[in-house]
Each structure stands twice: as structure tokens, then as C-alpha cells.
Nucleic acid binder design. Structure first.
Length: 441
DNA sequence: AGCACA
């Protein structure tokens, strides 16, 4: 029907409507900002914001068509474009005549979040990693994961809507740190809305679903898939007994890996009690002690084969140590005993919201909380792959580590996972990133 | 910088 004569044409209607379509808005533009923008021209009776893949479009609906016309006309001839937070906003008549707000799901705050994990397949993000990330905001009651047309999704149940909202506000649009993901995952943005559910019905503990309120829920044996108990070497593979102490060997050590770096990494999975670093066969190894086998198992599962620094540097290989309680110097170059140095942050459960990020305390995962706080404040989880104008500021993932080296050890890269500068001296026993301002943005 | 959702 339509001509194919290469003439650039407006694909969208210029027919006046009291609904205006706004684009190029700042990310997560609020309804209030939309109202402010339209107020001079008339009464805005409805809005719909955060529309589109980048959530940078919106609709506003005026009470009267003439009001919408006046706004469009004004900016059509104005030398000053419409702006929100300094960004030029492009305004056109919508091709619909009214805003239909579908607030049945997605925008009604509830205690259950619907999380879409973009750019990954179901096997790429373990439920333990999801649990870890969301536990920073409060006790996670239940998680159910599934695959839909939208991609890999998870329902995450918190105690209340406030906790869920805090998690949503902090994590929506952010990414899970790459070292928690398989190497082939380039990016992994979280899109979070509210579920209409209030209480998930979890039937089994499995690799797809968990009920953290009911540890005695039966485990679905066909669905365990090595998430927690990787010991069973059916073909006689790895039969090392589990332990609360992990032996980490570090391959491709281009950068100094300090006790503090290891502490930051391993604290994501539980309270790290002790760390000892030593040389073996010219390579570096470390022993990392947790209070329990479960934390060690989760850490082992999540970190095995992953690199501390982007670019394949400092690759971790983990096995269970035969030790159960390390005898280490409390505070040295090569070892640390966090059970002795009680900073009130590292080894004691947080009982107040006075953490670095001012986030709520995490009753069951104090160590996770510390980690998440540090990661978020350093822009790891929160690392924006996009700047405010929606321009990609970097290729996917972290900046590549620099190639320049000094004495066989690298200069501190401009940024690094965990907010730690490789090779930099860490004189404090506190993980370097906790409470510090972001290194970059 | 180009039109929403169950």
C-alpha cells in the first residue's frame, strides 16, 4: 500500500491528541517531573512514565486537547527546547487519544518482585547468586525462577513492600557483578517490577526455587543440579570431602591479590573468618575459612573458574581444604583473622542501618550485606553501562585491565572489580571499598 | 530520538 519511494516520512501520527508522547527523557523520570513540564500549558490528568526499553519515554495526557496543542506549538517554535534535568525532551502527539494505565501489575507495590534478568539464559545465574544480591535489602523469604518469553525471570518474596521497594529502587536497571556470572555473559541487566503475588508457593528446594523460611522443605532430587552439594562424584570425579575452608589457587596472577581483595570477594557468600595466603609451586594459593560448610560450598560453586579481574586475570580455582580451623596471624601481609579484629562491620552481624550505604541490616547475611554495600557504593552492581544521556560509555563490562606493568605487577587500573586497586597497598583491615566513595562513574 | 500492556 504505502509507497516505497525512499522518501523519509514520519511514521507516527501528527494528528493532535490530548496525549503527548515524550522521548529522550532522563532515565526513570518521575511523574512529578512530567507534570512540572506540562503544567504551564494546562492541566495534566494522567501520565505514564518509564516507557520503552530504556524507560526514557513517557506519555502525558492533558485535560483538554487545546492544552496539548499549545504545548506542542510552543516548543515547535521555541528556541529553547523542552528539558527535564537538562536533557532535551522531544514532544509529539501520541497516536493514541488517551492513556490507558495498566497498573494491575508492575506498578503496584507489593512484597514480591518480578525480576527479569536480561541477556542471560536460565543456567547462567544461579539462584544462590540471586539470593545473594537481593539479600542485601532484607530477608528473602522465597525465590522462584522460570523462563518466559521475556527471558529468565525470578519472583523474589520479601517480608514487606517496603523492603521490596528498597531492593527494586536500588537494583532496577543495574547489573549483577560479572564475576558472579559465567564468562560468556556480557551483560546482565535487572528489570524489576512488582508481582501481584504476595506469597509464593514453593514446593521444593531446587535449583529453580527456594523457600528460605522452611529449610526442611523436601529437596527435589531431580532438580538439585549441583547447586549446593557438589560432592557426589558419580563417575568418581571429585570426591574431596566438603569443608568450611576453601583452598583457592589463583591462576594468571597479573595483579597482586591481597588479603583484602580475597576478603571482599569471599565475603559475598558468608562471614569470612580467616584468610591465609601462601606460595605453592611458584603459584599463589589461599585458604579461606567460613564458619560453616554451606557458605563455603556456595562460594565454591559461585566462584570456581571465575576471574577476580576482568580480562582473564587472577582466575580462581577452588577446592575444599582438609583444614577446618586455620591457625593464622591476626594481621599480616599474608593472613588475617577476622574473628579477632572485631571492627563491628566485618564479623559482627549488623544490627543497625548504619552501614556504608545506609541500607537496612541483613539479619541472616551480614557478610553479604557488607559486600553488597561496598559493591554498590563502588558502582559494581550499580555500575552504569549507560550514562545519563543514554550513551554507552564503555563496552560491555568493566574496563579492560591495563597492559602496563611495573615490576611484574600492574599499575592500578582505573577501575577494577570490587573497587579494589590491584597492587595498591591496603593498610586497613577493613575491606577497601566499604564506605568509600565510588571510584568512578 | 520515534508510541505503552495482560
Amino acid at each position: 500500500m504505502s509507497s516505497s519511494s525512499g522518501q523519509p516520512q514520519f511514521r507516527y501520527s501528527q494528528t493532535p491528541s490530548k496525549v503527548l508522547h515524550l522521548r529522550n527523557l532522563p532515565w526513570e523520570c518521575t511523574e512529578e517531573e512530567l507534570v512540572e513540564l506540562g503544567k504551564p500549558f494546562g492541566k495534566i490528568v494522567n501520565t505514564k512514565s518509564n516507557v520503552g526499553a530504556n524507560r526514557n519515554q513517557a506519555f502525558v495526557e492533558f485535560a483538554d486537547l487545546n492544552q496539548a496543542i499549545s504545548m506542542v506549538s510552543y516548543y515547535a517554535s521555541s528556541s529553547e527546547p523542552a528539558q527535564v534535568r537538562g536533557k532535551t525532551v522531544y514532544i509529539q502527539y501520541s497516536n493514541r487519544q488517551e492513556i490507558v494505565n495498566n497498573k494491575s501489575t508492575g506498578d503496584v507495590a507489593g512484597n514480591v518482585l518480578l525480576v527479569t534478568i536480561e541477556g542471560v539464559e536460565a543456567g547462567d545465574v544461579s539462584i544462590d547468586v540471586i539470593h545473594l544480591v537481593f539479600s542485601a535489602f532484607g530477608f528473602v523469604h522465597k525465590i522462584a525462577t522460570f523462563e518466559k518469553a521475556a527471558g529468565f525471570q525470578a519472583l523474589i518474596q520479601f517480608t514487606d513492600a517496603e523492603t521490596a521497594a528498597a531492593a527494586r529502587n536500588a537494583l532496577d536497571g543495574r547489573s549483577i557483578p560479572r564475576y558472579l556470572l559465567p564468562e560468556h555473559v556480557a551483560s546482565c541487566h535487572l528489570r524489576i517490577s512488582y508481582s501481584a503475588h504476595t506469597d509464593l508457593n514453593i514446593k521444593f528446594q531446587s535449583h529453580r526455587s527456594r523457600d528460605y523460611t522452611n529449610p526442611y522443605l523436601p529437596v527435589n532430587p531431580s532438580a538439585i543440579e549441583g547447586t549446593l552439594q557438589p560432592t557426589v562424584g558419580a563417575d568418581g570425579r571429585k570426591k574431596e570431602p566438603e569443608s568450611n575452608v576453601l583452598l583457592a589457587s589463583i591462576e594468571n596472577m597479573q595483579y597482586a591479590v591481597t588479603v583484602d581483595v580475597l576478603h571482599t570477594v569471599f565475603s559475598a557468600f558468608g562471614t569470612v573468618q580467616k584468610i591465609a595466603i601462601f606460595e605453592k609451586n611458584g603459584g599463589m594459593q589461599a585458604l579461606v575459612q567460613y564458619p560453616d560448610v554451606t557458605s563455603a560450598a556456595v562460594a565454591k560453586e559461585a566462584l570456581e573458574g571465575h576471574c577476580i579481574y576482568d580480562g582473564g586475570y587472577c582466575k580462581l580455582h577452588l577446592s575444599y581444604s582438609r583444614h577446618t580451623d586455620l591457625n593464622v596471624k591476626a594481621h599480616s601481609d599474608k593472613s588475617r583473622d577476622y574473628t579477632i579484629i572485631d571492627t563491628g562491620i566485618l564479623s559482627a552481624p549488623q544490627t543497625s542501618a548504619a552501614g556504608a550505604g545506609g541500607w537496612p541490616s541483613v539479619p541472616f547475611q551480614p557478610a553479604s550485606s557488607v559486600y553488597i554495600n561496598s559493591a554498590a557504593s563502588d558502582g559494581l552492581i550499580g555500575q552504569p553501562a549507560w550514562d545519563a544521556s543514554g550513551q554507552r560509555i564503555r563496552p560491555a563490562g568493566y574496563p579492560q585491565a591495563p597492559s602496563a606493568t611495573y615490576n611484574g605487577q600492574a599499575y592500578a587500573p582505573s577501575s577494577a572489580p570490587f573497587g579494589v586497586q590491584p597492587g595498591a597497598r591496603q593498610s586497613s583491615s577493613v575491606p577497601p571499598s566499604v564506605g568509600q566513595p565510588p571510584l568512578y562513574y
